[in-house]
Amino acid sequence: MKVKLKVWRQRNADTPGRFVVYDTPELNPNMSFLEMLDVVNEQLTLQGEEPIAFDHDCREGICGTCSLVINGKPHGPQRGVATCQTYLRSFRDGDEILVEPFRARPFPLVKDLVVGRQAFDRIMTAGGFISVRTGSAPDAHAIPVPKEAAERAMDAAACIGCGACVAVCKNASAMLFVSAKVSQFGLLPQGQPERYRRVAAMVEQMDREGFGACTVTGSCEAVCPKRISLDFIARMNRDYGVALLRGA
């Protein structure tokens, strides 16, 4: 199969960008989408042009480095997978495919398809942890955790921090990302002492970074490669309300 790619190229944040069209050579439908970009980049290099910059690393859907908006959808057409786990069999021979970076003001463009997502680190630094010093932990069995709570916390903890939820949201809201972390700790007994302080600090930082508000359209859940549930946003809102009432 062959496809026509319309790829966003932009030298840096200060230079205007544009779409550039590339016709791919013959491709194998078992290739991943990123392997197709590898092939195109090999070709560009041999033609003396600069290859397309894009983020990627583990290529098995867990590190959260890869991004890309493919035909208008963060992480492409398939539900519940990251871009690196998108395969060409999801497309048809001759398709024209639009490839753009994750666009959101708190994710400044670096080059071509690469954006900066350090805003997420700053939100985590504001309170996304349980304050426990190395060596001071009690025995792991000191506090039993009901299986249901552990499973639910794991559902939230599965977030890979890719930012697709922000990229798809019309308000560039980071509520799904933040609520996943807040809920993971809020559901576990270990997370209770800092529960309200944490949610207040993280939400405050989220606002400071310029992420928008949530209007519960659910597009974030629809594109999340780990299918993080919208329920966690409701949970966070409740915790945040309590935090405000308590003056945390």
């Binding site: 349980i130 932990a137 025995d139 009901p146 299986k147 552990a150 916390a153 903890a157 270990q190």
Partner: peptide, 13 residues
């Protein structure tokens, strides 16, 4: 394991 549990790592139970 003690350390990780205290940090909120959601191990299988």
């Amino acid at each position: 394991i003690d350390q990780c549990v205290a940090q909120g790592v959601p191990f299988a139970r």
